[in-house]
Amino acid sequence: MPSSCVVCDNAMRRNMPGVNCLSCSNQAHYSYVGFIYSELTKSSASGGVKWQCADCDGQPSGPRNVATSALGNGIEGKLDKIFSELSAIKKQQSEFITSLNYYGERIDDFEKKLDVVESLDNKMNLLNTEMD
């Protein structure tokens, strides 16, 4: 059974390769730890990639790894993108609410006018029946 990525929890596969933690059995897809697969294959001649997962890196004795820093930066970048998109959504939502309020007021005005027209229609019908 293939192991799962500690970041996205999807299975590790040939078409989605990953890297193993130096300290434990955790694995993560290359894209989540800030590596490009083509660059990693070049580094295999020099002993391969050295990476520690966030769990192992959090230990006081564990050395800080460049890949873990890249993972943090990747997450921060993704969070910045999410916050930016949320800001755009909030702006659109605000504009939508303003539009809904405008059309709601317009509908209220039409209802008032319709009430007046219905009242006049009732009076006209009464007058017509009195004239007959």
Rank of each mutant, 00 (worst) to 15 (best):
I107E: 09
N65Y: 11
C56G: 06
G18Q: 08
Y30D: 11
I107C: 12
A70V: 00
E118A: 02
C53N: 03
V19T: 12
V116P: 00
E85I: 09
K112Y: 03
C53K: 06
G72P: 00
I75Q: 10
N128Y: 01
F35G: 00
L126A: 05
S38R: 14
A70R: 14
D108E: 14
V7L: 07
G104L: 05
E105H: 02
G58K: 04
Q59K: 13
P17C: 13
L22Q: 07
N10I: 00
D80L: 07
M1D: 10
S44L: 13
M1W: 04
E105F: 00
A11M: 08
G104W: 02
G58V: 08
L40Q: 05
G77S: 10
S61C: 00
L86G: 10
D115C: 03
M16W: 12
N26C: 07
G58H: 06
K81Y: 12
N65I: 05
I89Y: 08
R13Q: 11
D109R: 06
Y30E: 09
S119E: 08
S69A: 14
N10A: 12
Q27L: 06
M1E: 08
F83H: 13
G72I: 15
N65V: 11
L79R: 12
N101T: 06
K90Q: 15
Q27P: 00
L120F: 04
V66S: 02
S25E: 11
L126E: 09
A88V: 09
S61R: 03
K81F: 12
